[in-house]
Simulated assay, not measured.
Amino acid sequence: MSRTLSPVDPDWPCQVKAPGSHDWERTAARWLRDLLPARYAGYSTLNRHPVLLARHAQLQIQHEMRAVRAALQTSRCELPPLGVAETVIENTIRLYAVELEQLGRLARGVRLVGDALVTGGGTHRRR
């Protein structure tokens, strides 16, 4: 059984086969679809065109990052009037910080997969 090595870039998602390997685009599309809200699975245009799926996933993650940043920046002033305890606020701030890191990694992975889809599975460029 031959094995295709995964891309060197550490941000390449482990759920997606290496560009150019057998069936890699199907694994890319499945991973990208999983990043979107479930209702998007019904949109055949996105499912038939992985490049569009990558573009929409990138936009979705950007919006999620903006929402998490807003929640993080407003936690200290908006949560106390709601009766949220200081320890809970601190835990929430840590949660948002971790989520931003995870979303950043996902965004880099989506960008790499999208670039590979655009180039047809050739070598992808780092940004």
Rank of each mutant, 00 (worst) to 15 (best):
S21T: 03
D23K: 04
W24D: 04
E25Y: 03
T27H: 09
T27C: 09
A28T: 00
A29V: 01
A29L: 15
R30H: 07
R30A: 12
L32D: 04
L32E: 06
P37H: 07
P37S: 12
R39H: 13
R39Q: 14
Y40P: 03
Y40I: 04
Y40D: 05
G42W: 11
G42D: 13
L46G: 08
L46I: 05
N47W: 04
R48Y: 09
V51G: 07
L52T: 04
R55C: 01
R55W: 12
A57E: 07
Q58N: 06
H63K: 05
M65S: 12
V68H: 09
A71K: 04
L72T: 04
T74M: 14
T74E: 15
S75Y: 05
S75R: 05
E78I: 10
P80N: 09
P81R: 03
G83W: 07
G83F: 08
T87C: 13
T87R: 02
V88C: 12
I89M: 05
E90G: 03
T92A: 10
I93D: 00
L95M: 14
A97I: 09
A97V: 03
V98G: 01
L100D: 06
E101Y: 12
R105A: 15
A107F: 12
R111P: 00
R111A: 15
L112N: 04
L112T: 03
